[in-house]
Design a binder for these strands. Structure first.
Lengths: 116, 116
DNA sequence: TGATTATATGATAATATTTTCATATGTTAT
DNA sequence: ATAACATATGAAAATATTATCATATAATCA
């Protein structure tokens, strides 16, 4: 990816919202479907979906269908970007968020949680 | 500076606006007073001032009075921040903007330009 | 097939950001 | 001291972003 000013502004805009920054940090830890994010963040489904779209349109994440679920993950193409690498090294999920993520995965929320 | 989520969001928000990103890239090249920025960016004085304030409140820049002028510069304390260092390496002023900056300095705009 | 589940999306409402205008403040020059 | 200049700032207007609600789509399950 090239660091054009427009692309960078889109990335900054995408990451300058707390919800989206949290989602991005969660996805740096693990792939997640929308219902897992709903469960972890405790937010409305459409709010999560809209924010995921903004992250996707900034090129930060990708998605892929897996049966009923749509799995979101960090865009592998952007991981070679120096700015993104540095963000990854410098920014960390909060302890509480990390605990929520672990709980979600351990309890197999994807299969059990009813998301709407 | 510590990379708290709040501080980072403020930085991203500050840099996610084209005008402010340009100002920040200009200041990475050289210290500038408001009237030089007005001349280079060809924008209203109060617009420049408001945007400078947002950059300052994000901790990205500092200012200092010099007679009639107020000189803005990159906050030296933030230069040790890895994210900022990477931005500095990865992002560059456009060729046209660089030319404008050089012209401004060569023509000694600070002393000659009437800014309002 | 029809119901249920997971997710996306368009439209609207709520909220925040940005620009502009008018004016205030502080400095220098006369 | 007064005028001129450089800059800051509050308020209003213009614009953009975000959340919510209703509904659509696509897959799975019974």
């Amino acid at each position: 990816m090239k660091n054009s000013k427009k692309a960078i502004i889109k990335i900054f805009k995408a990451l300058s919202d707390e919800t989206r920054l949290r989602i991005y940090l969660f996805l740096m830890q693990d792939k997640l479907c929308v219902c897992e994010l709903i469960n972890i963040l405790n937010m409305e489904q459409s709010r999560i979906s809209h924010n995921l779209r903004i992250l996707k349109e900034a090129g930060l994440i990708v998605n892929q269908r897996d049966g009923k679920w749509i799995i979101y993950a960090i865009n592998p193409e952007i991981e070679s970007n120096k700015i993104i690498q540095t963000l990854k090294n410098e920014l960390k999920l909060s302890k509480q968020d990390l605990e929520k993520l672990n709980k979600c995965k351990k309890e197999n929320i994807r299969k059990k949680f009813k998301c709407n």
